[in-house]
Design a protein around this nucleic acid. Structure first.
Length: 514
RNA sequence: GGAGCGUUGGUCAAGGGGUUAAGACACCUCCCUUUCACGGAGGAAUCACGGGUUCGAUUCCCGUACGCUCUACCA
């Protein structure tokens, strides 16, 4: 009988959460939901020096925005709390002590200077990257080489110490990664990692393993950057006697920068002009602002969809648009890719546009109304909804709405002079007068009615569409881009259309006379 | 330098011993619209390279190259 699935997302509050973090959280969440399990958030704040004000809150808010909700963790608690490592401080020492007693760990008293000296010495003798490990520990100041009495005295005197793992000299460490298959490491390549720091806090390695054990985590789904330290974690489970409840591991591929190589960073976003953080972030130190996907105008559903597909695809189905519910149904770790994915902002925009097209115009209108209100523009809800219905076909973000629809709300003051200079003459002037008159007689101002009306007008008078429609467009909106002319006129309404035609006529005359 | 991981079109990717190697984004051409966008029809890859295994490899194995990650009393 399989254990109930319990997974966790365990970020460090050292700065704003970025895309990769959100994706890791999302995959954990999807996996948990898929298996009707539990998704836990645990704050790994064992490094007091790197703590950043507001980072934890930011992370929580980002996930909430994306629709990623946790079952246990900050804000909601749970049976395995507390969920912040700084509040679990008292828990870790006993396990480090257990390791020392069973001979798998030891006290080390070396000062940073002594460590540096050792590294320099080793480098000088031709070893490019010296490690504190099987080859060097016999020459350092630790409980393995110091006499028992001296160790006791040092501890009694309150001398600073760390607790280090004693890596076996020659052992093969195997682990089965759910994404990569069997991965083998030689213990001789691994060093004696610090498990417990001199400040009384555990390092990531110890705290992580202890907490995963205590919280009954069944699957560890985390970034690929952890793969090299995974064997250490496996050893820890073994030495602590928890081998039979060791979780399964899945190391996620990285999200790469769009150009060149390497991990996506804030710099890339700044350089290429797109967000790399889910929400706006202001650095508490430098006061530097970074824009978030949310503020850039992304819909949370589109963002989650986009991020999920950066490294995962359910296969078989030929589909890219998935609701959270669909992703939960389809999610499997087996379908996570092995190689890093380059982030492509163009594709991200495409996702948003797709969600835009599917969005309810009433909801869009409610959002757009805020923009209009700021500009002191009032209009009927039905009219705004109708305009949004047209706008969502051509805009990726609501922030683009105004630039693509201002002429519905304000009279044009500038007219595209290229078109005017090219098309405006006595003949077209006469035609437009005539068109205005027949428009005034039109009773049905719907899209389809106007469409047929306009085309039959051109046909009956034996004119060229190109001499009429573009001119009418400029008369009505001032710009040459926008929806189809019949749509434009219909949305504007009969009265305004005719008014604007009259005004434009006078303006056009002025324009060509200069 | 060492260890680990990775490598299907510019990008995301499906597929996995025998296929005309899906689809999407971007790009180009054309159609629609005498507008932009949407929409539609096309264009472009021999699956990093070299060896094996096999009747047959993009798919399995081994090398090489390249890339990435890690190599802290950071996570």
């Amino acid at each position: 009988m399989e254990k109930p699935v319990r997974v966790r997302y365990a970020p460090s509050p050292t700065g704003p959460q970025h895309l990769g973090g959100v994706r890791t959280a999302l995959y954990n969440f999807l996996f948990a939901k898929k298996h009707k399990g539990t998704f836990i958030i645990r704050i790994e704040d064992t490094d007091q020096t790197r703590f950043v004000e507001g980072a934890e809150n930011y992370m929580l808010e980002s996930l909430k925005w994306c629709g990623i909700t946790h079952n246990e963790g900050p804000g909601i608690g749970g049976d395995y709390g507390p969920y912040k490592q700084s509040e679990r401080k008292h828990l870790y020492r006993q396990y480090a002590d257990q390791l020392i007693e069973s001979g798998y760990a030891y006290y080390a008293f070396d000062t940073p200077e002594e460590l540096e000296a050792m590294r320099e010495r080793m480098k000088a003798s031709g070893i490019p990257n010296p490690q504190y490990g099987a080859a060097t520990r016999d020459y350092m100041k630790n409980s393995l080489v110091l006499p028992h009495d001296e160790v006791k005295t040092k501890l009694a005197n309150g001398e600073q110490f760390v607790i280090r793992m004693k890596m076996p000299r020659k052992e093969e460490i195997k682990l089965q990664d759910l994404i990569r298959g069997w991965v083998v490491f030689q213990s001789s390549q691994l060093d004696d990692k610090v498990l417990f720091k001199s400040d009384g806090m555990p390092t990531y390695h110890l705290a992580n393993v202890v907490d995963d054990y205590l919280m009954k985590i069944t699957h560890v789904i985390r970034g690929e950057e952890w793969l090299p330290s995974a064997p250490l974690h496996v050893m820890l489970y073994k030495y602590l006697g928890w081998e039979d409840v060791m979780p399964h591991f899945a190391h996620l591929p990285l999200i790469l920068r769009p150009d060149g190589n390497g991990k996506l960073s804030k710099r890339d976003g700044d350089r290429l002009g797109f967000p790399v953080f889910p929400l706006n972030w202001t650095d508490p130190e430098t006061k530097e602002n970074s824009i978030g996907f949310r503020e850039r105008g992304f819909f949370p559903e589109a963002f989650a969809n986009m991020i999920a597909l950066l490294g995962w695809h359910p296969g078989s189905v030929q589909q890219e648009l998935f609701s959270m519910e669909e992703m939960i149904q389809l999610f499997t770790i087996e379908h996570i890719g092995k190689s890093g994915a380059k982030f492509d902002f163009e594709k991200a925009k495409w996702f948003n546009h797709e969600y835009m097209k599917k969005a309810d115009s009433k909801i869009l209108a409610a959002e757009f109304k805020k923009v209009l209100t700021e500009k002191r523009i009032t209009d009927s809800d039905e009219h705004i909804v109708a305009i949004c219905e047209s706008l969502k076909q051509r805009c990726t973000f609501i922030s683009e709405f105004w630039d693509n629809s201002f002429y519905f709300f304000t009279e044009p003051t500038v007219y595209d002079d290229q078109v005017v200079k090219k098309k405006w003459n006595e003949k077209t002037k006469a035609i437009m007068k005539e068109l205005s008159a027949s428009l005034a007689a039109q009773t049905d101002f719907s899209f389809s009615a106007l469409d047929t009306f306009l085309h039959s007008f051109v046909k009956e008078k034996n004119l060229n569409t190109g001499d009429v429609l573009p001119v009418l467009r400029i008369m009505l909106s001032g710009t040459k881009n926008g929806p189809a002319v019949y749509e434009l006129a219909s949305l504007l309404g009969k009265e305004k259309s005719i008014e604007r035609m009259a005004k434009a006529e006078a303006e056009f005359d002025k324009m060509i006379s200069v």
